[in-house]
Design a protein around this nucleic acid. Structure first.
Lengths: 186, 186
DNA sequence: TTTCTAATGGGACGATCGTTCAGGTAGTTT
DNA sequence: AAACTACCTGAACGATCGTCCCATTAGAAA
């Protein structure tokens, strides 16, 4: 890694990243429907033409944003598993806590993630990104029971998407027995 | 029920229903993002102003469409349970078949349903509609085990949304063991 | 028949959209 | 120094958007 290959490119990539961050905030707040060159530019505090310069089209910006979101999600899953292992836990408490957090303070982010799901349903090129956190989980944990593991993955997604349409987000305590059931071997 | 209270209103409501049907087809094909007064009007074969006459705003049209979609979904769930009961089945085969159908021939409709979910996540007034099929299921089946039932509901949703980002839709045979696991008492 | 009302549809207005362009700035290379 | 390149940005273009206006049609009520 060279420290300064090109100061101009470094600044450019930094701004590009800032635009992606701003776009993600717009998605969290208003959904994919709220993403325009102008709303993202205002959110990022840059002129409108800056978003068209760094992304060849609005679609490019949207795809880059959701892929970035998916990478963050996969990273979080990775560290959650790592944390649970270091405690020698089976993970039920960690999973219930993460779900409650995803449906509470991080609700906007969770909605953005499911908008990625739906976008990936219509655009095959986004599917690897949308499956990323599933792949991380699949590759990290031991599969004693293939079917039980698939049920676990589906259960997580179902609890999240159903939690999004609850009138108020469920607490970790409410989710705990369901997660326990999902993780309990038989 | 009077046969003809007003011929004009009858025609009006018929056209209103046709517009909703057209809007649903647009959502299935292009997603909520593809819904505009003009695209829906073209799909329905009516002039643009007709959609603005029957719906006070585009938002009203979108909401009416997704509520209609949710009602259809609830009706289907109702009859699926009824059919399974009349066969004396526990429903595993019916559920697996319904999932495969939802992810295969009826993929567009399924995507539309999950766009309703996400819209409901942002608009509390849509949540009762989005929860409707869950409520139908909850009210119709016996709850021996509350937690197991919640796992079942979450599992269905998770299998559907994950099936939407598979490269090719899973078959009923592939889904069967997972559904069996979800339904098996313990 | 006359009057009233709901539905219809052609046309257009202002707003906002994605995108382009051309000039300007600043860091890199020769 | 000059030449080059990458980034930046104000301004504007054409397309499309939601919505409104107003004349017309047709069924209901008088």
């Amino acid at each position: 890694m060279k420290p300064q290959p090109d100061g101009r490119k470094a600044r450019g990539e930094k701004r590009r990243a800032e635009i992606i961050d701003a776009a993600l905030r717009v998605i969290e707040r208003d959904g994919v429907a709220g993403v325009t060159h102008r709303t993202v530019a205002v959110e990022a505090g840059v002129p409108t033409t800056s978003t068209t310069y760094h992304f060849s089209s609005l679609d490019d910006l949207l795809i880059a944003t959701l892929i970035s979101c998916a990478r963050d999600m996969a990273t979080e899953v990775y560290w959650m598993i790592d944390r649970a292992r270091s405690r020698g836990s089976r993970g039920a408490e960690e999973v219930a806590g993460l779900l409650a957090e995803a449906l509470g303070p991080r609700r906007g982010r969770t909605m953005a993630e499911y908008e990625l799901y739906l976008l990936a349903a219509r655009r095959p090129e986004l599917r690897p990104a949308a499956r990323r956190w599933l792949d991380v989980l699949t590759s990290m944990v031991r599969h004693d029971d293939e079917v039980a593991f698939r049920v676990f993955l589906a259960g997580i997604d179902g609890l999240l998407i159903q939690g999004l349409i609850d009138d108020e987000p469920p607490s970790a305590e409410e989710l705990r027995p369901v997660v326990d059931y999902l993780l309990k071997p038989r």
